[in-house]
Write a protein that binds this DNA or RNA. Structure first.
Lengths: 146, 146
DNA sequence: TCGAAATAGATCGTGATACGATATATTCGT
DNA sequence: ACGAATATATCGTATCACGATCTATTTCGA
C-alpha cells in the first residue's frame, strides 16, 4: 500500500469530524465567555493562571509558555484583562523584572462560572470528541499495521 | 456537598490541562499550515470542504455552518484561499445564488500533506488529549455520583 | 567589581480572523 | 406579479497574534 491510497476520503472525513468537534467546543467556549463579559482567550488565560501547579509563579513568560503564545501576546491579553478588572499585576518579589498576574475576586467569580459551564458542556460533547479522535487514531498508519 | 466545594483546585487544573492539550494541538496545526503556505483557518476550510459527506454541496453557507462561523466570515476565507490558488468558486448549477467552492489540484496537494502531518501529530499527542479529557469527565458531577 | 550578555516585560505597527450592519441578486410562495 | 426569504458580498470594527524594537533588571565572566 503506497502513501496515496492510505489517505482515502474516509480518512479526510475522520480528520474533518475531529476538527468539527474541536471547533464546536471552542465555539461554545467563545459564546459562553462573551456571555460572562470576557473574550475566549482571556478566559483561557484566567484558567491557565488559576490552574498553575503549586510553586509555579504566574509570570507573563510562564503564562505565555502555557498558552503557546509569544510573551508580548500575553502582555496584551493581561492589558485587556486588567481593564475588565479580572486580574491585577504585581511586581515580582525577588526578581524585579518579573510581573506576577493574580486573579481578582471578580476574576475568580467569572472563572468559576465558566468552569462549571464548560464542565457541563464537556459532559455532553466530550464523548463525541473522544469518539472522533478515536476514529482518526484507529485508522492511522501505525495503528492500522497492528 | 455544595457547588462550591465541588470545584476544587484540581478540577480547575484538569480543565487547564485539557485546554493546554487543545492549544498545543492547534499551535502545531498553525505552524504546520504556515509552513505549507496557508493559514490555519484556511486549512480547516479546505478540510471541511474535502471532507463533506456525499451529496452535500460545498456552498458558502454549508461551509460556514460546519466551521461554526458566520457566512460572511466564510466568504472572507474563500476570498483569501482563492488568492493562494487553493480553491475556485463556481456558480451553483441549479440555484444561481449559490457559489460552490472546489479545491484546485494545488489545494488538494497542500491538504494531503497537512492531513498526513496532522495524523502523525495526533498519533503522538492524541492519547494525552484523550487522557486530559478523561480527567475532566471522570471528576465531573454526574460521573462522580456513580 | 564592572560592563556585556541575557532575561523579563512593554510598545508599536501589521495581518488574519470574526463579527454586526448593510447591500445585491436570485428564488420561493401566494 | 411581487413581497418575503435565501445566498452571497461588502464595509467598518475589535480581538488576537506576530515581528521588530525598546527599557529595566539580573547574571556572569574577565
Amino acid at each position: 500500500m503506497n502513501a496515496d491510497s492510505d489517505l482515502t476520503i474516509d480518512r479526510y472525513r475522520d480528520l474533518a469530524e475531529f476538527r468539527r468537534q474541536i471547533r464546536q467546543f471552542l465555539h461554545f467556549s467563545e459564546l459562553t465567555a462573551k456571555e460572562h463579559g470576557i473574550e475566549a482567550q482571556q478566559h483561557q488565560l484566567l484558567l491557565a493562571v488559576h490552574g498553575l501547579p503549586d510553586g509555579t509563579n504566574p509570570t507573563i513568560r510562564e503564562i505565555a509558555s502555557r498558552l503557546f503564545i509569544q510573551h508580548h501576546s500575553a502582555v496584551e491579553l493581561v492589558d485587556r484583562l486588567e481593564v475588565t478588572g479580572t486580574v491585577v499585576r504585581h511586581p515580582g518579589s525577588q526578581d524585579k523584572r518579573e510581573v506576577w498576574v493574580r486573579l481578582t475576586p471578580a476574576g475568580r467569580a467569572i472563572l468559576r462560572r465558566l468552569a462549571l459551564a464548560h464542565r457541563t458542556e464537556l459532559e455532553r460533547s466530550g464523548p463525541e470528541l473522544a469518539q472522533a479522535l478515536n476514529s482518526v487514531l484507529r485508522h492511522s498508519r501505525r495503528v492500522a499495521a497492528s
